[in-house]
Simulated scan of single mutants.
Amino acid sequence: MRELLRDVLLLQREWSWKNTPAMQKRGRLIHGGVADWLREQLPVLKRDAPVELDDWDVEARDATGNKSVVPWARVYSASRSDSATKGWYVVYLFGAQGDSVYLSLMQGTSEWQNGEFKRRPLEGTRLRAQRAREVLSARLRARPDLVEQITLKAPKHTLGPAYEAGTVAAFEYSLDALPSEEVLRDDLIFLASVLSHLYDIAPVVGLADDVAPEIVDALVEADRSAGKARRGQGFRLDSAERIAIERRAVAVATEYLTGEGYDVTDVGATESYDLDARRGEQRLYVEVKGTTTVWTSASEIILTKKEVELHLREYPNNMLLIVSSIVLDRSATPPSASGGELQVIHPWRIVRPNLTPLSYRYLVAE
């Protein structure tokens, strides 16, 4: 494997988007050399991972149409990351200038749009990586030689910056100091074991899916109401878990508003908003949303028709409070929730182009 990594890095210095002889050789090394070596390690990964997984797999890519600036080969669970654009995995990333290669624990960082891969917003990708580092910190500290940031030296318009943002932790191997076969194998086994642990805890800490469970639930229910079966539902919440998250979000929101001097009444059971907040002559209609996922500027919430109507009508005397990164404890009966990070939007103007209908009621009339 050491020689394979060296040869790919040397060919990186001859990179071209065209299928030149050097790039053809690079492709053979990535797909037939590096990927094959990774497949040989799968029985060991399956045996040594602390969380049992039966669907370890390997994928490699060096081109999507044009030759990629940063080729890669990854190890993953087929059920938890059925595409390199989704979920978490361990991957070899080759520096664009051929000076280093990284074995990285990272996430899907792009989406397939209009015949090419488009990177997701870097802010959200970084936040998810940071959240993963936090929940994995005890395990990652066992290897002080890990780095939290990688430098692929790829052009800004490529996927290289997204790969950098999406990395949780990585082993860095420079061309001039590539480690032995034994070290490469041990490093792979270690990161794969961390990955298996992340797969196990991801649903609890809000890192299971790129789409929040609340959004998945709404999409599934909309399809079900229309008589459709939705595949690939990802992680969903049951009623007890939803209640725990909602109660935690309302508690965090109430504490914030009380600290701001408001008298707060929970009206969620009877009104189309959650909290009635009053301070002197001021009255606010407050919407509260809770989620286990990491919040970013590209995140989404679910609103009912009545909620939309109310907040359009009451603006600017309204507020949106989002409590993200709530920790759900399923070991308790019923489940409990704790933590949470608060985002405050006040006043909250609903922008109609940002609303996406999930389903329609249609009157069938002749």
Results as ranks from 00 to 15, higher is better:
Pro21Phe: 02
Arg352Leu: 09
Lys86Cys: 07
His31Cys: 11
Glu164Tyr: 04
Val101Glu: 01
Glu221Tyr: 06
Val183Cys: 00
Pro179Val: 02
Val211Asn: 07
His157Pro: 08
Val101Pro: 06
Val294His: 00
Val288Pro: 03
Arg349Thr: 10
Arg139Asp: 15
Glu246Lys: 01
Leu127Val: 08
Leu257Cys: 06
Asp238Glu: 06
Ser110Arg: 05
Leu320Gln: 02
Tyr199Trp: 06
Arg120Val: 03
Asp48Val: 13
Leu38Met: 15
Val327Glu: 08
Thr64Cys: 09
Leu53Thr: 15
Glu148Gln: 05
Ala138Leu: 14
Ile301Asp: 03
Ile326Val: 15
Asp209Glu: 14
Ser324Pro: 05
Asn66Val: 08
Asp7Arg: 03
Val288Asp: 08
Gly33Trp: 05
Arg131Cys: 12
Leu184Met: 10
Gln24Tyr: 01
Leu11Thr: 04
Val364Thr: 14
Ala169Ser: 11
Gly160Asn: 06
Trp112Phe: 15
Lys289Asn: 03
Tyr360Pro: 07
Ser359Arg: 14
Met1Asn: 04
Gly234Leu: 03
Gln233Tyr: 02
Asp266Leu: 00
Arg283Asp: 09
Arg349Gly: 04
Tyr102Asp: 10
Leu237Ala: 07
Arg278Leu: 00
Pro357His: 06
His157Met: 00
Tyr315Glu: 11
Ala154Val: 12
Asp62Arg: 00
Asp276Ser: 13
